[in-house]
Amino acid sequence: MSTFFFFVQLLNAIQYALILYLVASGLTLLLGIMGVINLAHGAFYMVGAYIAFAVVQQFGNFWLTLPAGILIGLALGALIEKFLLSRLEGADHLSQVLLSFGLILLINEGQRLIFGNDPHGVEVPKILAASIPLSNTLSYPVYRLFVCAVGIVFIIAIGLIMAKSRIGMMLRASAENRDMARAMGIDVKFVYLGVTAVGIACTVLAGVIAAPLASVYPGMGDQVLIQSFVVIVLGGIGSLSGALVGSLLLGLVDAFGKQFFPNYAAFLVYAAMIAVLIVRPQGLVRSRGT
């Protein structure tokens, strides 16, 4: 393996890790702050990709897809919390698992209804369509660097919000001790609404920016869902920094696993999750919100 090839794989690993982090951070916040296990998270990722496809097809402008994805994601999340999740308060994981399973069926079938079963492509915007030559045979697409940039901006933004802002403090307080947070005047219901809306918007955004990287197809969120759960188990529930480490690890496993064991890449991911839980049955460090 040449140095350049290794370098390209490493970049791919990082780029995939950043997309995974966008998905996993929403998932881990939902779990850490609200205790909600959302198996439909992968389906929202697919929703994002189809939003990108539909917007580019309709308006021919990639840049519209970003605000469209964020707004639709926020709205979806708010509606789901307001009309579904808030009614499950005090219910067990079984209800959450099945509610999100019902949502998966609705979203998947809705997608088939509107877009059909054929995979679609989303064109890379012209300004990012170039490639940077690395050697005579290898080059690196600029769009992938753009994805990395979005991911890094997101990491910094959410990190700052959680660590420095009052909203971040309120989120951490609500995750740690719901009753005391309420006794201090925090409207926990509103916090939950915000967390669900933002958590789902992050995932939709991940789907939007991932759309031009590969094709847009039914069930494209399944793998991302399971991988982001592995990320959370690795990083600890509710921990954003843990999710970042977990995402990078999984990005490496995914990129290099596909090179060395093309048939067993999916295997490796599940085996990793099982291995972690065998060693630590209750997950790794259970820190929240930092």
Binding site: L84, R87, S95, L98, L99, F101, G102, L103, I104, L105
Partner: peptide, 10 residues
């Protein structure tokens, strides 16, 4: 089926 599940859970 998805609708049935969501309604049943709620």
């Amino acid at each position: 089926v998805g609708l049935i599940i969501v309604v049943a859970v709620i």
